[in-house]
Design a protein around this nucleic acid. Structure first.
Lengths: 202, 202
DNA sequence: TCAAGATTTAAACCCGTATTCAAAAACAAG
DNA sequence: CTTGTTTTTGAATACGGGTTTAAATCTTGA
């Protein structure tokens, strides 16, 4: 073992790749971009990774995992399903047009239609987010906090869909729809779907 | 003037570019791809267009215009706002994972975060679609067909957002969510938002 | 300190890119 | 058919891509 373990070095490269992808796009990013971001040469990158595309897949995979885990952590200590729901909606949206995590996810939207690996990653993430919302909705329904107008699966799918779409609008710098406006829009749906006023905490 | 006018030849190239973009992605498409799709050489393409990126922008622009105009045409002869709404929801979704028009739109999702031109095109299309929905909702409200639970702008924005998101899921080949399922999901929201049963016509 | 191993670099390689340009081909009009 | 113009080709240019490899550097353990 040297100063940094083999896996640690790969983690660094994954992070460099993540930044490079955001800067140049999944299909526009090059080995030199990643190397520059990592403070190395392209050869050194390829010493740790067999080829570029594998590194890019790992970078996307890691980015998704981080995004999802962060969302779970945000609501880990909460009891009230209504509060959980509001916080979860917020955590699914980018903080601004340059939010790195969402930027990374949005890069895959087009590529997923051509690349089975990326398609699988994206649909898996979607389904996990749906399950996350569904769990909140179900417990809220059981506790009487929510009165669901539809099957929880339907509402959950629509909530994640709304997040995704407004994420795209925000990263595309829509002049009117920012993070706050997107939250309001999604909450408008969540309120009618749950029958809960869902007050935002500030 | 020769057999084909200058603008006609450009239209052919735009269509070739559209197909090439779908095959290789906005950032992965090359001059040779477009030329091959048009049955020409790269030099001939550049004889009609000053450079590749300008052609790509035109191709995206034309694709959006076609997509939007087609949606308007679908509901042009209809009276009943409920019927209009259902048809419009359908026309906003891809027919399947390989639907060319939606594939083209999805290509821009990631690029819009890096390219101001693409961002403008996408947000403009979004706003126009919102206006289209809003018009349907407003007339339905005026006629008493709809009883809107929210401002028509809010509902319209959410409807377009849902279309966009499910378009991505469908083109990414989600194993469960296809065009029919997506329609049902969006209709679930539309029903609660309009207070109308919104029967699908078959 | 020294030797062995791991890591990084720099250069070479080959392939593909956008773009330019002179020559060839296709075409329209006289 | 011939002339003049438009269009297309194919080659040349110059650059950048990913990947490989030998040499140089750095790190660790003895």
């Amino acid at each position: 073992m040297t100063r940094k373990s083999r896996t640690d070095r790969r983690v660094d490269l994954i992070d460099a790749a993540r930044r490079a992808i955001i800067r140049h796009g999944t299909e526009g990013v090059g080995l030199n971009h990643v190397a520059e971001e990592a403070g190395l040469t392209s050869g050194a990158v390829l010493y740790h990774y067999p080829n570029l595309s594998e590194l890019l897949v790992d970078a996307h995979h890691a980015g998704m995992e981080r995004f999802y885990e962060l969302r779970l952590k945000r609501i880990s200590g909460m009891r009230d399903p209504a509060e959980k729901l509001v916080v979860t909606i917020r955590s699914g949206l980018p903080h601004g047009p340059d939010d790195p995590d969402v930027r990374l996810l949005n890069e895959l939207g087009g590529a997923a239609a051509r690349n089975r690996m990326y398609a699988l990653l994206l649909t898996t993430l979607y389904d996990r987010q749906v399950a996350m919302y569904q769990s909140i909705l179900e417990t809220g329904g059981a506790l009487g906090t929510f009165t669901l107008t539809d099957d929880s699966l339907v509402i959950a799918r629509n909530l994640v869909a709304l997040e995704d779409a407004y994420g795209y609008r925000i990263t595309a710098r829509h002049p009117v729809i920012g993070p706050d406006e997107a939250v309001d829009l999604i909450l408008a749906y969540a309120r009618t779907a749950t029958g809960n006023p869902l007050k935002t905490s500030h």
